[in-house]
Amino acid sequence: MYKSPSPMSFCRNWFIAWLVVGLAFSALAQQPAPTPARARKATAKPRSGYKQRVFNARAPGYTKKGQLRRLSPDQLWDAQPDSTRPNRGPFRLLVYAGLGASYYATPLNSPVALVDKQQLRWSIPLSLRVMWQTDHRMRLGIETGYVSMYSYKGTRNGELANVRVSATPILAVFSMSVVKRFALYAGTGPYRINSNLQYDGDTQGTTYSLGWMAAGTYTQPLGKNIGIAAELKWYDATQTKDACFIAQATLVWRALTW
């Protein structure tokens, strides 16, 4: 018999998909990228009388001007090529707080029974992300926030109906710095979808929708522990078919280093 995919199998597919993604990221992160520079370093004999410069990622050095040396992900990697050794680090906790603009990007069919309909797809989203920056390339974290997905209003028999739908993501996020200051993010988890109806009374509704997100950021350091990032992001609450595109400015704060 024809069997419709059940919510259980849908969740299982998602779990498997993200397990594959996580393992792939993890596998990649455990191996040094075979760049030509690294290949040369690996085979070159040290010249006599030359003290090779080694980056110490746990105690970052200072520049000649006395400023803290910022290490790129590749430099961090070169300093700590073996992430399985017991003395690991440094680890950092990064906090991202973003504010920007969102556009609801999936079809929106407000009820045909309404007349004089008006739809609003734009909103100002907020996001908060906490990432654990490991001593290899992959970062792990969680993300939440608030985005007003869409709203519409119209009249039915002369009475105004107003519907607003918003989402709060609760996502597990993976991130990888691909080149200096540029990072990609992918996440999955539930979105808490809220609706508010003002028509024949005031009615709220809530449901959870499994979904995913993808984002890219470019971060510009502003100080020792502060930076600002430009971020493009896609939120997709798959089960409720809600998705939006977000462009936002994100404040990055290196809250902890150990």
Partner: peptide, 15 residues
């Protein structure tokens, strides 16, 4: 898709 979610018992027949 209408934006209305949650238990059907939360809504009036008119809604």
């Amino acid at each position: 898709k209408s934006g209305l979610i949650g238990p059907v018992e939360n809504y009036t027949y008119k809604q």
